[in-house]
Design a protein around this nucleic acid. Structure first.
Lengths: 117, 117
DNA sequence: CTATTACATCGACAGACGTAAGTGTTATTG
DNA sequence: CAATAACACTTACGTCTGTCGATGTAATAG
């Protein structure tokens, strides 16, 4: 979260003169922003956010069939949301027989959390 | 972030018997999740996340015309992103003559930040 | 008043998203 | 093996999103 850019001094400009010079943006932040935005985007749905909330509190103890009745959506839709969370690197799953147990990957939220605080 | 749900005990089931009972979901969490998801969704774009990052470090000191050259997007697109951040309650703006100065609303990120940590 | 600058809004478009219904896959039960 | 249960994948569809170019609006400069 460094992003220390040089700011052009602000003053009233004469006509024909632009407000500010283009400022070089530090590439450092760019990949970090991509990663954090990906996580934030995955959390940007109420159902997925609540899913993460539930999984953080009952890691490895809840199967998908128990998650379905918590939300007013179909099982395939919930599976889709879990897939999104997994694609974002927030959760992973473990199969045990018929059941699939999801859990939040440790420290998956840390970078965003640190930046936010 | 309470969400303390009762978990049906998990055991292998006989055929013809469902995995789990529907579990009542506490409504408490729902609105909280809606608010936090809205904030997360607004942060779920690299440009908007970097915008918030810049604004947090230079609150009230950067006009829009200085933000434009930082990103490889057009001015209307940047205005659109700022509008999204404002709609999510993350930033607000102040007009001074020709220039518009954006700033992060204090504590706008706190609820999400607290939940994440 | 006219020209110009800063910023927002509008219109358009391709692509992504959330959702459901249907189907497929794998594992367990009988 | 046949039936069933848990879960993922496919298809489809309406909506939202990110982007740009063009236009609109307010304010300053001359």
């Amino acid at each position: 979260m460094p992003v220390d850019l040089e700011l052009s001094p602000k003053q009233k400009r004469a006509a024909g003169e632009r407000c500010c010079e283009p400022v070089v943006y530090p590439d450092v932040q760019r990949e970090e922003a991509l990663r954090m935005a990906e996580v934030a985007k995955a959390l940007g749905d109420p159902i997925r956010l609540q899913l993460v909330d539930v999984l953080r509190k009952h890691a490895g103890k809840v199967c998908v069939c128990e998650l379905v009745p918590l939300f007013d959506i179909s099982q395939p839709t919930l599976s889709h949301h879990l897939g999104k969370l997994r694609a974002a690197g927030i959760v992973d799953s473990e199969r045990k027989g018929l059941w699939a147990y999801y859990y939040v990957i440790p420290d998956a939220l840390q970078e965003l959390s640190t930046w936010l605080s």
